[in-house]
């Protein structure tokens, strides 16, 4: 269908559809770029997590791979001192507001944050930044899953599937700034909301915020 273009990512020549965002072009070809908020189905990238920075030749500063379309002859580097520095800071900022208790987390071993830490040799521990996590009660009300807001990284995947795939409209982003969070109308627990407990949102959560209960029992 669409035209193909040849681009270079980390010295590898790739043929990808023209205009494909670099993040997907790289991932499809086995090149990992850290990312949380990016997911393919969403028509417009949120570009909120700020983890997928890459260097593109000719650009003065690193750019986010989820927003940058592939153009013929483009030369991309997934790593550089500048990229590494930005990714490290963004990662540290995210974990400064994420309840880090991996040993007791249902997603231990299958967590995007752990994957990023491993890929980029980053510590899952705060060294220079302050702990910002506020203790919030876990919403255990649904039968098969639970929601721990203190582990949420605000990637928005759950909100997207709730609205667009499951078409329920039970959860959404509320408030703003540091108080921004994923919650329900009136901030009631999930079973008191329109939630149908279909579990679609749990499947897309990259971290341990939305987890199936049987996983936790394992």
């Amino acid at each position: 269908m669409s035209r193909k273009v040849t681009i270079t990512i980390d010295d590898r020549q790739l043929t990808v559809p023209e205009g494909e965002k670099l993040l997907w072009a790289a991932l499809d070809n086995g090149l990992y770029i850290p990312h949380l908020c990016g997911f393919r189905e969403s028509e417009r990238p949120a570009a909120g997590c700020r983890l997928c920075f890459v260097e593109v030749e000719g650009h003065p500063n690193p750019v986010t791979a989820c927003t940058e379309p592939a153009v013929e002859g483009m030369v991309v580097m997934t790593r550089s001192p500048r990229v590494d520095r930005l990714v490290r800071t963004a990662f540290e900022l995210i974990i400064s507001n994420h309840r880090l208790d991996c040993a007791n987390c249902a997603k231990n071993g299958d967590c995007e944050l752990q994957r990023i830490a491993k890929a980029r040799k980053l510590k899952l521990k705060l060294t220079r930044l302050r702990q910002l996590v506020k203790e919030t009660p876990v919403d255990d009300s649904p039968q098969s899953f639970s929601y721990d807001a203190s582990r949420c990284v605000l990637c928005g995947r759950c909100v997207w599937v709730d609205h667009n795939k499951a078409k329920v409209g039970a959860i959404g982003f509320i408030r703003r700034g540091i108080s921004r969070k994923v919650s329900t109308f009136g901030e009631v627990c999930l079973t008191d909301s329109r939630c149908t407990q279909c579990g679609e949102c749990v499947k897309v959560c990259p971290v341990g915020a939305l987890t199936f209960k049987e996983a936790a029992d394992k």
């Binding site: 963004a90 995210i94 910002l132 108080s179």
Partner: peptide, 20 residues
């Protein structure tokens, strides 16, 4: 901090760290 929309990591959490 009060006016940040909260969408992106650097503004939401970075300015919070600086403010603290």
């Amino acid at each position: 901090q009060n006016e940040s929309c909260g969408k992106c990591t650097f503004c939401r959490l970075g300015t919070k760290q600086m403010l603290d």
